[in-house]
Amino acid sequence: MNEYDFTLKFNLDNSLADTDDFIERLYAGGCDDALIGVGNKGYVALNFIRDASSAYEAISSAIHDVKRVVPSATLIEAAPDFVGLTDAAKILGYTQQHMTNLTLENDSKFPIPVYEGAHSVWHLAEILIWLRENQTHSIDDTLLDIAQTNMNINIARSWQKIPPDTQESIKALAV
């Protein structure tokens, strides 16, 4: 068994007006290993530290626990996954400058961002794999397992938004 630290963000329907009751129900429904944040109305973030034999087991059981208590909850994001260089540096215990240097020194080899802009965004798993394979950095297996599982969940969640009749043609464009 390993300890997995991850965050799940959900959109909630408007029927959950009583926040205290909602939090109690989550706690009683198996989410007693989560810190629950309800900052914006209609949204909840749960930061879990869950013991399991794999990240998939930890994350999927957490999603099932939330959905059992609030069947209408819609998963928005599983984190960590989408990261900027500052986020990646913080997760890895590096400086932001070190991460920037890695991208500049290895421009053509560094993973391709999910979003390219003033503040580019990557999948954390792709950075971790690249660091392990190309820079011989020591990457925690548990962190990599979490990042890969979350990346797969977020990609699958996005893929479901594509109408089934156009999925194959869209898939062909992305190759």
Score class of each variant (00 low, 15 high):
M1H: 09
N2Q: 13
E3C: 03
F10Y: 14
L12F: 02
N14G: 05
S15K: 09
L16R: 04
T19C: 11
D20I: 06
I23P: 11
E24N: 11
R25F: 08
L26V: 02
A28R: 02
D33I: 01
D33H: 11
L35Y: 14
G39P: 08
G39K: 13
G39S: 15
G42N: 04
G42V: 04
L46Q: 05
N47Q: 15
F48R: 02
R50W: 09
Y56H: 07
Y56Q: 08
Y56I: 04
E57W: 02
S61E: 09
A62L: 04
I63W: 07
V66F: 01
V66M: 02
K67D: 01
K67A: 00
R68M: 02
R68V: 00
V69P: 06
P71F: 03
A73E: 12
T74R: 08
A78I: 04
A78N: 04
A79C: 06
D81Q: 06
F82C: 06
G84P: 02
G84M: 14
T86V: 12
D87K: 11
K90P: 03
G93M: 11
Y94K: 13
Q97C: 04
L102N: 05
E105N: 13
D107G: 05
D107Q: 15
D107N: 12
K109H: 11
F110A: 15
P111Q: 12
E116R: 12
A118W: 03
A118R: 09
V121H: 06
W122C: 03
W122H: 07
H123G: 02
L124V: 00
I127L: 14
I127G: 05
W130E: 10
L131W: 08
L131M: 12
R132W: 04
N134M: 08
Q135G: 03
T136I: 12
H137L: 08
S138D: 15
S138I: 06
D140R: 00
D141L: 07
T142W: 07
L143Y: 08
L143I: 09
I146C: 02
I146R: 00
A147P: 01
A147V: 01
T149W: 00
M151C: 06
I153V: 12
N154S: 11
A156M: 13
P163W: 09
P163N: 10
Q167A: 07
A174P: 08
A174F: 07
V175Q: 14
V175L: 10
